[in-house]
């Protein structure tokens, strides 16, 4: 297999943990998920850009998004379509609930076997967990090589990609055969914006459960007329899994305990920016040999 036909981007819809405001916790001290906006995981957008750039360099290639999540995760598939993706797959259902990274990678690997991908691209990590595990775990499950922390595909030749990656204190250029899994760093080029014509066309894209919820909608009529507007929605049954490896029961890691964060307040000495107060502080620190 020497040409790239199918590029699949693994992406996740995440709560925007960077926007944690005062209402992020409920009065009972639990996380108020509803107060956090759901967004396209930032590094997955970099992955999408790398995939779209690769597609432009490989005649006849297509880019598909694959995500696992609730029905509303179809939003990020539409978002990817607006920016250039050709289609998408949503893995959804209660069988997947409670998955840790290993169970997630297992489900994604099953779906990828069914889709058949020449290149799999994912963001390095998701901002709600920061584990950076799912990409490498998918690669292992599929028996594929991986290139992590990628910034750019610098060359494409018969059966091989040459990729520049960012590692701790430097860069590395590697040549890897495809099929393979690439995880993309936040330092890679940002994703192109939405394309106005694509937005008009793909805003009617819907997955099966969305069509089911609104069978007479304008979007449903559009999907009936244009099959490429259907987002493929799969439940566990569609990907022929070993049920024991899915969801909570397929997750080796268990949460034993959750504690809310309580700061142990110590009495801070409060100062203003007034000159005499700051000079007093400096003198105090110098007298204590903390500075100077």
């Amino acid at each position: 297999m020497n040409t790239i036909q199918r590029i699949v981007v693994l992406a996740k819809q995440v709560p925007d943990t960077r926007q944690v405001g005062k209402d992020a916790m409920t009065a009972e001290g639990t996380v108020n998920r509803a107060a956090l906006p759901a967004i396209f995981n930032p590094e997955d957008l970099h992955a999408l850009e790398l995939a779209l750039t690769l597609k432009e360099r490989c005649a006849g290639a297509s880019v598909y998004l694959l995500t696992m999540g609730p029905q509303r995760a179809a939003d990020i598939i539409r978002e990817a379509m607006y920016r250039g993706a050709d289609g998408g797959y949503l893995l959804s259902g209660r069988e997947f609930a409670g998955s840790d990274t290993l169970a997630t990678s297992y489900a994604l690997a099953c779906a990828l076997r069914k889709i058949g991908a020449d290149v799999i691209v994912a963001g390095r990590q998701a901002i709600d967990g920061d584990t950076a595990q799912v990409g490498p775990q998918v690669a292992e499950k599929l028996g594929l090589p991986q290139v992590t922390y990628a910034e750019e595909v610098v060359n494409i030749e018969q059966g091989y990609l040459t990729i520049r990656r960012r590692i701790a204190e430097g860069i590395e250029v590697v040549k890897a055969p495809f099929p393979l899994v690439i995880t993309v760093n936040g330092s890679a080029p940002a994703c192109r914006p939405r394309h106005a014509k694509r937005l008009m066309y793909y805003k009617s894209a819907r997955c099966r459960s969305e069509l089911h919820a609104a069978p007479a909608s304008f979007a449903a009529q559009r999907v009936a007329a244009k099959p490429e507007l259907e987002i493929i929605e799969w439940t566990a049954a569609n990907i022929q899994p070993d049920a024991a490896q899915l969801g909570l029961q397929g997750s080796p890691t268990k949460v034993k305990r959750i504690e809310n964060v309580v700061f142990q307040a110590k009495e801070a000495k409060c100062l203003t920016a007034a000159d005499e107060e700051l000079e007093g502080l400096i003198q105090e620190l110098m007298a204590a040999h903390t500075i100077g």
Binding site: T272, A273, L278, M286
Partner: peptide, 30 residues
């Protein structure tokens, strides 16, 4: 800000204002 809860000294003010003053008074006193 939550940082106040673990701080020994909490200066309320803008970074652009406070830091130049800290530099100035450190230099003066040293």
């Amino acid at each position: 800000a939550p940082i106040t809860k673990i701080a020994d000294y909490a200066i309320t003010g803008r970074v652009e204002e406070v830091i130049p003053k800290l530099i100035k008074y450190y230099k003066k006193n040293s």
